[in-house]
């Protein structure tokens, strides 16, 4: 599956390639998505620094939006903590999955450095890592992630900054088309995941969450994720007996 031309690259060439991949489409869309968060945050009563520090420190859109809506409703600090934790709980799974894809253990980084790099992980970088896994050898995936995630992060933070002041700049007709880009981009990436079990999980999780939403609200994400992932895992292991390709 790996392309031989990518095997010859060194770490800094890989970082540069990754940054260029990020510049192709996802970083602009994400910048505007974060500008969208900034607009919501300003309407909810955040000042500029609060919006900026939230993007820098949380760096997970669903949790940030949950935070802004609870803040505007005047929720208690405890409720804010619980709701943001729940909305961003998928970080746990994404961090484990990304560390596995990058063979993070083999890089022998100290714990603080591993946590530092994982601070930049969000859905877009994680989903792109799955794509890069099909091209790059595993020892180059950490540099790939670093180049890609930092570029996305930079655009996301710029989006937060500009969005706070310039939210009225884009006409609504264009804004809603641009905000549509990020979810579609990520869905197209993950529906093309390398392993069949993961593609099945995308399908089941995606179908279940809107079905559960009317009864379960935001919990639908958690339920659909656990149920969809478990069903896909069980099906692939015991019924279809798909082999898990070991990463090259």
């Amino acid at each position: 599956m790996n392309n031989p031309e990518f095997h010859m690259l060194n770490a800094s060439q890989t970082r540069r390639n990754a940054a260029i991949d990020a510049l192709r489409a996802p970083c602009y869309a994400l910048g505007i998505t974060m500008a969208g968060f900034s607009t919501i945050a300003r309407e909810s009563g955040f000042d500029f620094w609060m919006a900026l520090v939230t993007s820098l420190g949380v760096w997970g859109m669903p949790g940030q939006v949950a935070f802004a809506s609870l803040y505007s409703a005047g929720a208690s600090l405890f409720i804010i903590f619980v709701a943001v934790s729940l909305a961003n709980m998928r970080m746990l799974l994404m961090v484990i999955s990304a560390a596995d894809m990058m063979h993070l253990k083999s890089h022998n980084l100290p714990l603080w450095k591993r946590i530092f790099w994982m601070q930049f992980l969000a859905i877009t970088a994680w989903a792109n890592l799955g794509l890069a896994q099909q091209k790059y050898p595993s020892h180059l995936l950490l540099p790939y992630y670093q180049g890609f995630a930092l570029m996305i992060f930079a655009f996301g933070i710029l989006g937060t900054i500009f969005g706070f002041f310039l939210s009225d700049l884009l006409p609504p007709d264009i804004l809603r088309v641009v905000i549509f880009i990020t979810p579609i981009y990520i869905l197209l990436l993950i529906i093309n995941a390398r392993q069949k079990a993961n593609r099945l999980a995308v399908l089941i999780g995606g179908v279940l969450s809107p079905v559960f939403f009317p009864f379960a609200g935001e919990w639908a994400i958690l339920i659909a994720g656990i149920l969809g992932g478990s069903l896909a895992s069980l099906y692939s292991r015991f019924i279809a007996k798909w082999h898990l390709d070991p990463v090259q």
Partner: peptide
């Protein structure tokens, strides 16, 4: 493998929502 499928399902669930 299970953690990975749950991560994929949960990300897909967020996006569809």
């Amino acid at each position: 493998g299970w953690v990975n499928t749950m991560a994929y399902a949960m990300v897909s669930a967020v996006l569809l929502l």
